[in-house]
Every structure is written in structure tokens, then in C-alpha cells.
């Protein structure tokens, strides 16, 4: 079996895999990082979104072998120890989830939106950008609110880092 190695949440990961192994399977089954979910398995729902070299990608639609050498960030790598990432905190504050199944993908997409579109997001921008993430229980209202708040909070984070 071919070998794949990548950096996941800052740690080196390496394994021999069946070529069919999807990135999401590698994360969940090899590394036991089960925060990344498989919803539809057809690249529609976005529950499996992770960042590959800094960009949001549907990990159910990428082979683990293609990610060889890549830097992967999953929901588990977002918090700073016990301190939640500002976007996670905003989802909690705004009650932006009900069952929570779509939440990891929503949050990873949200952080990607902020990276691409900045910290001041219009509501319609957030709604458009969420078209690849599907929630089947709460509706999107609080999710949209949380992403707006999280995006603003992330600007504080950047200034803080710059100051350090």
C-alpha cells in the first residue's frame, strides 16, 4: 500500500493507505479525529470541510494520497488549548447549532470566509458563502449571526497576535 504523510493540526501524520482512502476517512479512521463529519458523502453538505494548505476543502472529495505533503487544519486544531477559537465561541454565544452535526464544517467554512472576505461581513455575503454547507435542523439564522460576530471577534485576535 502506498504511504501518505501530511501535517494535521501541526502534528506529522503518516500511514500506509488503500489508494481509495478519502481524506476524511484518513482523518477519522486513521487519526481518530472524528470532529470532521461525513454527512452526504457527495460533496453537497459541507459537514466534512477542513482546511488544506489554508483553504476550505470538502474532505470527502479528496483522496488522502492527494493531500500528501499538505498542511491540514481540522476542527480539533482550531482552539488554543482550552480556549475556544473566536468563531467557536461565537457559535456557542449565538446558539448557532441544534444537533451539531453540521457545526464543524460550518465553523471551518466560516473561518475560511473570514480569511477570504475579511472581518466585516454583510449578512448576504455570509448567506451566499454558506451555499456549500447544509444544516437540516436549526435553519441558518443563528449560524449567520454567529459568523458575523465570530468574524468581528477574529479581528481582535489578529491585533492581539500582532501585539504579541
Amino acid at each position: 500500500m502506498p504511504t501518505v504523510s501530511m501535517k494535521v493540526n501541526g502534528k506529522d501524520a503518516k500511514a500506509d493507505v488503500d489508494p481509495r482512502t478519502l481524506l476524511v476517512q484518513f482523518l477519522r479512521e486513521n487519526l481518530r479525529l472524528t470532529g470532521t463529519h461525513v454527512g452526504c458523502d457527495t460533496s453537497q453538505c459541507g459537514a466534512c470541510v477542513v482546511h488544506v494548505n489554508g483553504k476550505a476543502v470538502k474532505s470527502c472529495t479528496m483522496l488522502a494520497l492527494t493531500a500528501d505533503g499538505a498542511e491540514i487544519l481540522t476542527i480539533e486544531g482550531l482552539a488554543n488549548g482550552a480556549q475556544l477559537h473566536p468563531m467557536q465561541e461565537a457559535f456557542r454565544e449565538n446558539h448557532a447549532l441544534q444537533c451539531g452535526f453540521c457545526t464543524p464544517g460550518m465553523i471551518m467554512t466560516a473561518v475560511d470566509i473570514v480569511h477570504r472576505k475579511g472581518n466585516n461581513l454583510e449578512e448576504h455575503t455570509i448567506r451566499e458563502e454558506l451555499e456549500g454547507n447544509i444544516c437540516r435542523c436549526t435553519g441558518y439564522h443563528n449560524i449567520v449571526k454567529a459568523i458575523g460576530a465570530g468574524a468581528r471577534a477574529m479581528s481582535g485576535e489578529v491585533t492581539k497576535q500582532a501585539a504579541e
Partner: peptide, 9 residues
Amino acid sequence: IGDPAVRHR
């Protein structure tokens, strides 16, 4: 095309 994550790949 698709959605933002699809457009990244």
C-alpha cells in the same frame, strides 16, 4: 461553479 470549497479544488 459549485460552492466555495468546490471552487478551491
